[in-house]
């Protein structure tokens, strides 16, 4: 209890600049985008989409810290929920495609291209 009170009394020390967090989020987003563009396995593409969603979450949380307003955390919460729904549906589609085509490589799935 005393330690908690002491920690609360401590003044705001100079912290890590928010720009670092934003740059990390940008790098993570770009890596996810690179994976989506380059990989051919549909499952790995889904993982890269999750990376991009996480980068967006990190941006929300970083801006929430910058403004001292925790509404950004609520947005991150909703993004997590939507990502869970997206993963469930996406993986179900991958299973259905694998069952009908026998492959999860995106270059084998091009019926609607012609």
């Amino acid at each position: 209890m005393a330690a908690q009170a002491a920690a609360r009394e401590a003044p705001n020390r100079p912290m890590v600049p928010i720009t670092y967090y934003l740059l990390l989020a940008a790098a993570l987003f770009c890596m996810g985008m690179f994976g989506v563009l380059v990989r051919r396995n549909a499952l790995v593409i889904f993982m890269c989409v999750e990376l991009m969603l996480n980068a967006a979450n990190l941006t929300f949380v970083a801006f929430a810290r910058m403004r001292g307003d925790d509404l950004g955390h609520v947005s991150a919460f909703f993004v997590i929920a939507v990502a869970a729904a997206e993963a469930a549906i996406g993986l179900a589609i991958v299973i259905a495609v694998f069952r009908s085509r026998g492959s999860v490589l995106v270059e084998d799935i091009r019926t609607m291209k012609h």
Partner: peptide, 26 residues
């Protein structure tokens, strides 16, 4: 794809570096 990724990161970095960096003092 790699070139587009590097370009996007460069554009994002230029914009993000203009944002004030100090966290809010609570």
């Amino acid at each position: 794809g790699g070139a587009a990724t590097v370009g996007l990161f460069a554009a994002l970095a230029i914009i993000l570096l203009k944002i004030p960096a100090a966290p809010a003092t609570l």
